[in-house]
């Protein structure tokens, strides 16, 4: 039930250590990332609803685009890209 073991993932190509069992959104917030996606008028956006409704936290996870990061848990080796990280 407690947070799991130390794992390593890549955020915008950069290796990052975190604990397994956390949501991808939580890990990025803990890293201080503010722009998860870039809005149609160019604003950086970050999680709002935390429950899969607003789609503001969407980004690319393991090659799948437009994934809601609040709904996905981090696993070892995960590859994450924000919109402006490409």
């Amino acid at each position: 039930m407690k947070t799991g073991e130390k794992i390593s993932i890549r955020i915008n190509g950069q290796k990052t250590e975190c604990l397994s069992g956390l949501s991808v959104a939580a890990v990025l917030l803990n890293c201080g990332i503010e722009g998860f996606r870039t809005s149609v008028s160019g604003e950086g956006r970050a999680p709002v609803c935390g429950m899969g409704v607003c789609f503001e936290c969407r980004l690319e996870i393991d090659g799948r685009r437009e994934v809601r990061s609040c709904q996905v848990l981090v696993v070892e080796g995960m590859e994450i890209f924000t919109d402006d990280g490409r």
Partner: peptide, 20 residues
């Protein structure tokens, strides 16, 4: 629409899923 402006329940959900 700024980052760090959350829904109340949304922030709680994110903290429960590991946001420190």
């Amino acid at each position: 629409t700024f980052p760090n402006v959350f829904g109340i329940g949304g922030l709680q959900a994110l903290v429960k899923s590991g946001f420190d």
